[in-house]
Amino acid sequence: MALILLALAAVWLALAWRGLVAARDAVDATWTAIDVHLKDRQALVPALVAAVQAETVIEAETLARLTSARDDAAVASTPWERADAERRLVSGIGAVSAIADRHPGLGCAAAFVDLQARLAGLDDDVNSARRVYNADVRLYRARRARFPGTLLRRLGDFTDRPYFELDHTRDRGVPTLALVRSAA
């Protein structure tokens, strides 16, 4: 009887190990998908800078910030660093869109319009991949936090994985609403 219980415990631990490995590998695979989309977006930045420079010469500071943000995103190594760098890159791309609002000729340039459409498509791809990645991270963290994952994670490479957020929603508090009673 003891041998059967020992065998059942060994099978249970093996299945738990396998589930933890599968969850970790899913997180790593979906991170790779995000990474591909982010690199595609970074690859468009030089063309975007060139398109803006062809139409206007007075926005050098904005373009320099965009180029710097791209370079930072390219060398970021952890998902946390990558998210911060990508936030700056998205902000820089938004600043370039504001340039197009100030310079109507830029908004009509075919190369610029094409790049904006490609960037919008990549943003959609990044957001879709981010949702899948964050769901995989949620499952992985749950498996790490439950028994026997709490024991097994010490035996393998089961380090924590961060959620990937491109905005500051995690830093926002609950909005407050001030109600004012009218004197009527």
Results as ranks from 00 to 15, higher is better:
L166Y: 06
D160Q: 06
P104N: 12
R88E: 11
R130W: 06
P79R: 01
N127P: 03
A2T: 07
N134I: 09
E61I: 04
L152R: 02
N134D: 14
I93D: 01
W80G: 08
F147Y: 09
A109H: 11
A43H: 10
A95T: 08
D157K: 04
I58S: 15
F158M: 02
A111L: 13
A184C: 11
A64P: 03
G94Y: 05
A83R: 02
L8D: 04
L8R: 03
L63T: 06
D84V: 09
V132T: 13
A178K: 13
R141D: 11
R138Q: 15
A95N: 13
R153D: 06
L152I: 09
A7P: 04
S68H: 10
D25L: 10
R70N: 07
D84P: 02
W80R: 10
T159F: 07
A120F: 00
V126D: 01
R144E: 02
S128H: 12
A2E: 06
G107F: 10
E81A: 09
L115G: 00
K39G: 04
W80M: 08
R172K: 15
V11P: 00
L166M: 08
T176D: 14
A64F: 05
A100K: 01
F164W: 05
W31V: 00
N127E: 14
V52R: 00
R161L: 03
A117K: 13
R138A: 15
L179T: 14
D114Q: 13
V137E: 04
R118K: 13
D136H: 14
D28P: 00
R18M: 07
L151T: 08
A50D: 11
V45T: 05
V132R: 11
W12C: 03
A83Y: 04
A33R: 05
R24K: 10
I93L: 12
R24V: 00
G149N: 01
L155Y: 07
L13Q: 03
A178R: 12
D71S: 12
D124A: 10
R41L: 03
A135S: 15
A129N: 04
W80A: 09
Q116F: 04
V27F: 02
T169H: 15
Q53P: 08
L48Q: 01
Q116M: 11
L3C: 05
P175V: 07
V90P: 00
P104F: 14
S128K: 10
T30Q: 14
L5D: 06
G92I: 03
D25Q: 13
L5R: 07
R70D: 04
R172F: 11
